[in-house]
Design a protein around this nucleic acid. Structure first.
Length: 925
RNA sequence: GCCUCGGUGGUGGAAUUGGUAGACACGCAGGACUUAAAAUCCUGUUCGCCGAAAAAGCGAGUGCGGGUUCGAUUCCCGCCCGAGGCACCA
């Protein structure tokens, strides 16, 4: 019987579906295990062979865990809100809801062909009303909460109001408005409007006017992580700063816990590093400097700077404040006012992009000075764009001998440089060392910089002119988009106050629209529906939520996807708990992962779930690159020259569709028919063959190197495809796709099939027990496969399968007992063939419900083994040694070995090293 | 510039990090079966030397240069190259 994979795979996919083979219950006596894939955005392009890599790995692992006796949750869904669908609607007039449904249908059929064990009854789509109702609900929880910094825990807003009434905000400084301070009396005297305004500065989801990244081309605001070098990540359009009313998540209040939480999860070092860099915690001091300015309005004001190097206090040569700094207008001297005004104009004229692209040294002297706290000297205060208004205090103390930027600034403006680090500073560049012994540094003289840090801080604090301060680089996350295809906010504006809608009016349904032009004043399309926006006594918020809203909590919805009373019942989230294994790409390192970690912490604080880190373990699958094929056109002609001869001509390089190339050989006829331009192409060949060039690059339509999994599955079957993707290399590593290599895995599967079936004789499986040698080969394989699967080394597991099948074929093993056990071990990787042969050999039920065979160690014990015998560390021969041999036994044997005798040349060895189960080394004198 | 991870045959990769470097595959070469093809099977395949060939042997070899060790792809020091991330964060 032939291995008819197409029929087999279709048959079992249907059977599994009909039998609900992958349905998972929230009630089970088995231990739970939650395996999650990062759900896809259903783009119009469909899947290419790179996408399923992580899905296959998680599928193999889920199936393995199931066989090991776990109740495994392994769901899938779609992150179906987002910009591309909206862009597509604008270009093609097809509503996002429609194109999204079509795309999902395509994705689903592609996924189905690969034979994943998803419980589709738990599917979620972020754009479904039943789903985004709860996204809106969670938003309301965040809106109605504040961070109690003392307890490091989010609390309900009404508790804050009680505190204000009792004690003002003395013990809970305002995160949104640093200098806001009020007593209980004052609070009680506030108008309702003022109270709302104050509370907004505390809310975890809040609205404010902010400078945002505005992208004219996309008509929307982008998050910091969506802007790369001043242009949009999507499309590369210019981005400028614009003041807009925006929603934000106060993620900065979670900075410390997001950082600390990294200690408790199993993410890769680089992933943890990316996140902690993003959070950007630094220790230092805020120091107040007395101002010396002519202007009366500077009277009594101080300049507060942030520094991480208080030890360099005596090296200050100038101060720099950001152009946006509030003090600018108060300290600019009359003589300098014209220059300062011109400089501010210049700064405003520069877009974010220009500022990032060309880092020119610019600045202007304000005319004002600061007093040095410990020395009789005045320090000039400069204004420059290299100091950022949004970080620290927006002002710095410049120490040019130790800081490169300060050094360049000093050199550029001819400001004299004080050296406090002796020979560490050579006058040509700053030296940021912490190892120097301080000089010219008053009371810090003679101290090592690392020690001076604390001494300086103590002194500053004692004098009341400075204090220790921790800063974070992370900013609050912009949470609104001027777009249509996202969750509407459950907010109504009444008299300029944001009023949350009651839970009973959720979901706020996104109204159907076909014309998705932006609304007036940089508002989204929803602003074009005044009748929708108008509600009793107010207007709806017309922004929508960003793409990461729905993806921040989807892993919770899978636990209880049909619940209409709650986003997820507490029983369900208590049962499933954290995601045990999360598989996805590294591109979400700082976006999605940080947001979902924050949402999880907030839901935990508010008592809705029982854990505060969503993902226990994260594995990042690598990207599969495309293997492009190139042809070379002789410039200005229709002549194409083969790769080996191209250097003899002046050529242009063009990508050709990889499907027209076999290895490197171009199908010239297909090429001529490919595009009208090439119909009359001629070829300069190498012996009649046109050889293409090749290049590894991103798999993309534009390079014609996209390989569709459907085609591979059609040609080789899903089992071959799954195993080949695993065989390609370590999951976490980037690697190129090579369609030719799949033959090897396909041959292996066919060879496996032949252990069961012979083309002529039919079923070969026999009841005779397997020979010990077969059991030995088998259990050796099982042990390796299980080890490898457990540690995500799927590629080596596949090669162990190959070795196993090669061994059993050689041993002519057709024993039913052994082979049916083999099916169980193989089934996570190749479920279809395993199920088919399970049934063919008359096994009851499904191989999915079998249990993983236990390795019988007795077959693996060895009474003796072959040791490599090295002479001076270089392997020369091998030697059989009994397991119970002593050092003396081994030495005696070694000295008899002819190879050793030859090398010894009659002399005695210096030493004989015998490491049990490893090797033997003879050291010559 | 800083941080993280890498660099092994013609190719993908293995050696579960101090113990036989190149498992398992792809490709290639040769052969068997076949009228032929497909499929399948067998042999060889890191480089160099010695040899008609085979066997055996010798030397070199995991980006480069040093070091530690009986023994290094693995550990240490100094470079080079590649991928990804961050980038005026004081």
């Amino acid at each position: 019987m032939e291995y008819a994979f197409r029929n087999i795979e279709r048959k079992w996919q249907e059977n599994w579906k009909l039998g609900n083979a992958y349905r998972v219950s929230n009630q089970s006596a088995k231990p739970k295990y939650y395996v999650l894939d990062m759900f896809p955005y259903p783009s119009g392009a469909g899947l290419h062979v790179g996408h399923p890599l992580g899905y296959i790995a998680s599928d193999v692992f889920s199936r393995y865990k199931r066989l090991k006796g776990f109740n495994v949750l392994h769901p899938m869904g779609y992150d179906s809100f987002g910009l591309p669908a909206e862009q597509y609607a604008i270009e093609h007039g097809i509503p996002p809801a429609v194109s999204t449904d079509q795309n999902i249908a395509t994705f689903r059929s592609q996924l189905d062909k690969i034979g994943f064990c998803y419980d589709w009854e738990r599917e979620v789509r972020t754009s479904d009303e039943g789903y985004y109702k709860w996204t809106q609900w969670i938003f309301l929880q965040l809106f109605d909460s504040w961070m109690d910094r003392t307890a490091q825990k989010a609390r309900k807003l009404n508790e804050l109001v009680e505190i204000f009434e009792r004690e003002g905000n003395l013990n809970h400084p305002c995160p949104g408005e640093k200098n806001l301070a009020f007593a209980p009396m004052e609070w009680n005297g506030f108008s309702a409007h003022r109270k709302a305004e104050v509370l907004m500065h505390y809310r975890l989801a809040f609205c404010g006017i902010g400078e945002v990244n505005w992208c004219e081309a996309l008509g929307t605001v982008l998050a910091n992580d969506e802007v790369i070098n001043g242009v949009s990540e999507r499309g590369g359009h210019p981005v400028v700063k614009k003041k807009l009313r925006q929603w934000y998540l106060r993620i900065t209040e979670y900075a410390e816990r997001l950082l600390a939480g990294l200690q408790t999860v199993d993410f890769s070092d680089s992933m943890k590093e990316m996140q902690s860099n993003w959070i950007g915690k630094s220790f230092g001091a805020e120091i107040d400097f007395e101002l010396v300015a002519e202007n009366p309005s500077a009277e009594g004001k101080k300049l507060k700077v942030y520094t991480t190097r208080p030890d360099t206090l005596f090296g200050i040569d100038f101060m720099v404040i950001a152009p946006e700094h509030a003090l600018v207008e108060h300290i600019t001297s009359p003589q300098q006012s014209a220059g300062v005004a011109a400089y501010l104009d210049y700064v405003n004229s520069r877009s974010e992009r220009e500022r990032m692209a060309e880092k020119k040294i610019t600045g202007v002297f304000s005319g004002a000075y600061c007093k040095h706290p410990f020395e009789e000297r005045n320090i000039p205060v400069w204004i420059s764009e290299y100091v950022l208004a949004g970080y620290g205090t927006g002002a710095i103390m410049a120490v040019p001998c130790g800081d490169e930027r300060d050094f360049k600034f000093a050199k550029h403006f001819n400001i004299p440089i004080t050296n406090i680090i002796g020979s560490y500073y050579d006058g040509t560049a700053a030296n940021p060392t912490k190892e120097a012994t301080l000089e010219n540094s008053g009371f810090l003289n003679g101290l090592l910089m690392t020690d001076a840090m604390a001494v300086a801080l103590d002194q500053l604090e004692a004098l009341g002119i400075g204090k220790r301060q921790t800063n974070y680089r992370m900013r609050d996350a912009a949470f609104s988009r001027q777009r249509y295809w996202g969750e509407p906010f459950p907010i109504v504006w009444k008299d300029d106050v944001a009023v949350p809608l009651p839970e009973s009016s959720l979901p706020v349904v996104l109204p159907p629209m076909t014309d998705l032009r932006p609304g007036p004043d940089a508002q989204g399309p929803l602003a074009n529906l005044p009748e929708w926006a108008a509600v009793d006594g107010g207007t709806r918020e017309v922004n929508t939520m960003p793409g990461y809203a729905g993806s921040s909590w989807y892993f919770l919805r899978y636990m209880d996807p049909k619940n209409t009373d709650s986003f997820c019942s507490r029983e369900a989230s208590d049962y499933w708990g954290q995601v045990d294994l999360y598989i996805g790409g590294t591109e979400h390192a700082v976006g999605h992962l940080l947001y979902s970690r924050m949402w999880t912490k907030a839901l935990y604080d508010l008592g809705h779930i029982g854990f505060d880190e969503p993902f226990k373990r994260l594995v990042n699958q690598g990207k599969i690159g495309g293997d492009s094929r190139l042809v070379y056109r002789v410039r200005g002609t229709k002549q194409f020259v083969s790769a080996g001869l191209k250097d003899q001509y002046d050529t242009d390089e063009l990508h050709v569709d990889v499907t027209m190339v076999d290895g490197l050989d171009l199908d010239m006829e297909a090429f001529k028919q490919w595009k009208p331009d090439f119909a009359d192409a001629t070829f300069i060949t190498e012996d009649g063959v046109y050889k293409c060039g090749s290049r590894l690059e991103k798999m993309s339509k534009r390079y014609f190197n996209v390989v569709n999994p459907d085609d591979i599955v059609e040609r080789y079957g899903a089992d071959t495809f799954r195993m080949y993707e695993m065989f390609l290399g370590p999951v976490e590593q980037d690697k190129p796709w090579d369609t030719k290599g799949i033959e090897g895995v396909h041959r292996f599967i066919k060879k496996f099939w032949r252990l069961f079936f012979d083309t002529e004789k039919g079923l070969m499986v026999v009841d005779t027990p397997a020979a010990d040698a077969a059991w030995k080969a088998f259990y050796k394989m099982v042990k390796k496969v299980e080890d490898d699967t457990a540690r995500f080394s799927f590629n080596t597991a596949v090669s162990s399968f190959m070795i196993g099948v090669n061994d059993l074929t050689e041993l002519h093993c057709h024993s039913k007992d052994l082979l049916t056990k083999f099916l169980v071990v193989l089934s996570p990787y190749a479920p279809h063939i395993a199920e088919e042969l399970w049934a063919a050999t008359g096994q009851p039920g499904s191989v999915l419900d079998a249990s993983y065979p236990l390795v019988e160690e007795k077959y693996l014990v060895e009474t003796s083994r072959e040791y490599p015998l090295a002479i001076n560390g270089k392997t020369r021969t091998t030697l059989m040694i009994d397991a119970d041999a002593s050092q003396a036994d081994v030495e005696a044997l070694v000295l008899l070995d002819p190879v050793v005798v030859k090398w010894l040349e009659g002399k005695a060895p210096k030493k004989i090293i015998y490491v049990k189960n490893k090797m033997i080394n003879v050291v010559l004198g």
